[in-house]
Amino acid sequence: MTRLEAGALQPRKERVDIGEVIASALCRAARLLSDHETEMVIEPDLPMLLLDDVLLEQALFNILDNAGKYTPVGTKIVVTASVAADTLLIRVTDEGDGFAAHDPETAFSKFKRFKSADRSRPGTGLGLAISRGFIEALGGKIVSRNRQDCSGAELVMTFPLDEKNTK
């Protein structure tokens, strides 16, 4: 966390297949998400981006772990990847309670943990803060919000599809 805050993290960027990174994060999180239905929806022909696959996978793993902690057993967690305009979008959606009265952006605060009716596994409250740091170090952005189509949270990562990311 200290290296992230100091801007000292130097990603090792190489061409990355986003679908493979998402599949790997879901595989790593499988045990933690065993009581949930998971789905991966990857738009065909996504461009390869210059990213650090290790940092991106860890960011996704942290987000998936968080979704598993704060959503009821049996609910669905979906990871999608698509392109809109000149941006790669990676979305993680769940069917939990969403952010209730909390500002969704507080989810990225260090040591922030929400009460979850005893569903939650122990944690430090750093996972989403670290995810944001990794994504920003890769030149992306992440936002959190409540879903519009049903109950639940949505975390959306965006990465520009410009020359420096797609060469």
Rank of each mutant, 00 (worst) to 15 (best):
Y70P: 05
D94Q: 06
L55P: 09
S151Y: 14
L128S: 03
G152P: 02
P47S: 13
K110V: 04
R113N: 06
L64E: 02
P72K: 12
G139K: 10
T2Y: 12
R113G: 05
T71C: 05
A25P: 01
V54Q: 11
G7C: 04
R31I: 04
G19F: 04
L9G: 09
I135E: 05
R12C: 12
D35T: 08
E57M: 09
K167R: 13
V143E: 15
G74M: 09
S34F: 13
R113C: 07
R31T: 04
E105H: 06
S116C: 13
R145N: 09
C27A: 15
L155I: 09
M157P: 04
L49E: 06
D149L: 13
D17K: 10
G19Y: 04
L33R: 03
D35Y: 11
D35R: 14
R15L: 15
H36C: 09
A6Y: 11
V156L: 11
R119P: 12
Q58P: 01
T124A: 13
T106L: 04
R113S: 08
V21L: 08
S131Y: 01
G152R: 07
R121W: 02
I63G: 00
P122K: 00
S109A: 12
R3E: 14
E163A: 13
L155D: 03
L161V: 09
R132P: 09
I142M: 09
D53G: 07
E5F: 12
V83I: 15
E136D: 13
G125H: 01
A59W: 05
T38S: 04
T166A: 14
M157V: 09
L88Q: 04
I18S: 02
K69F: 00
L64F: 00
A107Y: 00
T38Y: 02
G140H: 02
R12M: 15
T80D: 12
E39I: 01
G127L: 00
T80Q: 10
V79E: 08
V92H: 01
Y70G: 08
E43V: 14
D86A: 15
A85T: 11
G125F: 00
I18P: 12
L55Q: 05
L4M: 09
D17C: 13
K76M: 10
E105A: 13
G140D: 06
Q10G: 05
D35C: 10
P104M: 15
L138E: 11
S131K: 01
D162V: 10
K110W: 08
E154T: 04
R147M: 06
L88D: 07
T2W: 11
L60W: 00
